[in-house]
Design a protein around this nucleic acid. Structure first.
Lengths: 335, 335
DNA sequence: TGTTGTTCTGTAAGCGCTTACAATCTTATA
DNA sequence: TATAAGATTGTAAGCGCTTACAGAACAACA
């Protein structure tokens, strides 16, 4: 069942059938409807491979991420996929694994699939040392590269990011204004957004004349138990803190668990602020105040931007989305 | 940069280049290494579209689900993708949206992409009324259809499921043996696995001479607040219960929240059992006992089975994986 | 009716790969 | 040293589609 069968049955040439298939206006209404009728009758489906060969594209976008089961990334992938599909594009998913092993190998595998663009979801993707991103920049000469929640200043690379710096800054300021002075800061990675967040925290302290102390800033695996254990350990070492800020909700959950275990009152004795406003932050009791990073909006903008790049439009290399502080119980100060 | 460039530079015919590309043994070692060297030198990447045209496949599997951001499905998709890739297959993701709107349209879209197989992730996919699955069975004549956590008895359709019935039965029995008699049962959907679960619950009651009462079985949207509100409402109506079983962790979280709000002691006054053992069940305090449905194993088996189908092996239409009860604090009875 | 311009349709040459079959080269054997 | 068998390579015909270009059909106008 191919284009010849249709052309034969409809009594036209394959070129005409192809024109109908591609919505070419140079087909008389009569011919078009006859061809469509035959296609319908024969249940004809064009062969996408042949089409891809001829057109050089199969309207497919590669989506890369580390671990797609992470709540944040899972949301991103869902919205990206739906958004892309609404524009007629398919999504080829590629997960490298939590540690981004073989990141480059997978990236090139995706390119070899002749996708029309690659979306790198999650800020972990872009190395902080420029040299390691060379292959991404190289690829960007051939096809658009979209970063969701990451940034790389290079032609052909487009970023959609959250104002992480401002979000963390004002969240920290909020705690400081509530009288907190010893704010523990936990983060998961040294990614672009990770750095912005910690900078926001630090500057908020500095601007309020609070010294930034090394022992209040710690890296932690993205796991609630790791976080709980780390906080417990720090507390055991005598570190005193009246608030915890985390670069990811899962770490904040650990903080809440720690507090419950030690009978520490939230938020009076310990305030907690998470990040991403994922479902995790609603599971705990008290519910965790968190920063909504507007994943859906981020994804919509990413896809819209990509479509404009395809259309050859003039497109900003970086779009910033405003995060929103979601006030819940862990910062519901009575004062 | 195509196969002709390589053949010219290597001084061989394109057929030979193609043979090297496909690992055909009828190539002398000398020729093979020369061709490989040239490919490397020219950074040649075969055109997948042309290849697809010639071979009739692009080694791509379609993965369909409702909402890929649901923790359970997100995990499944992650494991499926990684597993498929380890076998050299790409994953084309297709999300229909939470309500499975246009399920059939999307399904046929995926088929038109000439994927080598379709994996339907999540038991919601298969309608309970057979007639509505006709199009799936029809498609199964052309390519393998794999169901993850769903079942449909029809040629060409392979299922990997959990022993949901037994898991729920023994979980309920556990509660009964701990003296609970009024067990509230909440479920999200009338899917295949959903039905098995509720049957397990009912039969456990019956086998222990406890009447199955309609007012103890309720459907609820997969959302912790919906669940909390529903339980609150039922309680307000005077329904008495000393345990809650849920077909999904998110509903169990709602139960825990309800209990905390009303100062009901867990597990002494109210026991709670969730399902899927997702991260949600670890976020609450107390942590929720849950049934681990072995997503990773389910996915591994699904992919392995698919590979064996491709190899023409004799493959069981249904593989059952044993779930595991994870004892946590919501059933940590002192007695 | 002949011309010209428009609109529609067909022809044929790709797109880059696979593979059946034919041709050539090796090697082993008599 | 022929020669048959086996190993290796090349030729050419697809795979099913797109599209530049040529050609046909048609309408409008002189």
């Amino acid at each position: 069942m191919n284009i010849y069968d249709v052309s034969r049955r409809a009594g036209v040439s394959i070129a005409t059938v192809s024109r109908v298939l591609n919505g070419n206006p140079n087909v008389s209404e009569k011919t078009r409807s006859k061809v469509l009728a035959v296609m319908d009758e024969l249940e004809y489906t064009p062969n996408v491979f042949a089409r891809g060969l001829g057109l050089g594209t199969m309207k497919t976008i590669g989506i890369m991420c580390s671990d797609s089961s992470d709540p944040y990334l899972a949301g991103a992938i869902y919205h990206l996929e739906r958004q892309l599909r609404s524009h007629g594009y398919d999504s080829l998913l590629c997960c490298t694994g939590p540690s981004l092993e073989n990141k480059r190998t997978y990236f090139e595998l995706l390119l070899s699939k002749r996708v029309d663009a690659v979306i790198l979801a999650g800020s972990k993707f872009v190395e902080l040392i420029d040299k390691n991103n060379q292959y991404i920049m190289e690829a960007a000469k051939e096809l658009p590269i979209m970063l969701v929640n990451g940034y790389l200043n290079s032609p052909g690379i487009y970023s959609t990011v959250c104002n992480d710096y401002e979000a963390m800054y004002s969240a920290a300021a909020r705690l400081i204004n509530a009288g907190r002075r010893n704010i523990l800061y936990l983060y998961t990675s040294h990614s672009y957004s990770g750095l912005n967040k910690v900078e926001g925290y630090k500057n908020a302290l500095t601007d309020h004349n609070i010294p930034v102390r090394r022992e209040y800033i710690h890296q932690c695996a993205k796991d609630l138990n790791e976080s709980r254990k780390l906080i417990e350990k720090l507390s055991g070492l005598g570190l005193e803190f009246d608030a915890v800020m985390a670069s990811d909700d899962s770490l904040a959950v650990g903080a809440v668990k720690f507090a419950r275990e030690k009978n520490i009152k939230i938020p009076d004795q310990l305030a907690v602020i998470g990040y991403n406003n994922s479902i995790l932050s609603d599971c705990t009791d008290p519910e965790i105040s968190s920063i909504d990073t507007k994943v859906k909006q981020l994804c919509t903008i990413t896809v819209d931007t990509l479509m404009r790049v395809f259309d050859g439009g003039n497109v900003p290399a970086k779009t910033i989305v405003a995060a929103e502080f979601i006030q819940k119980q862990t910062t519901n100060f009575s004062i």
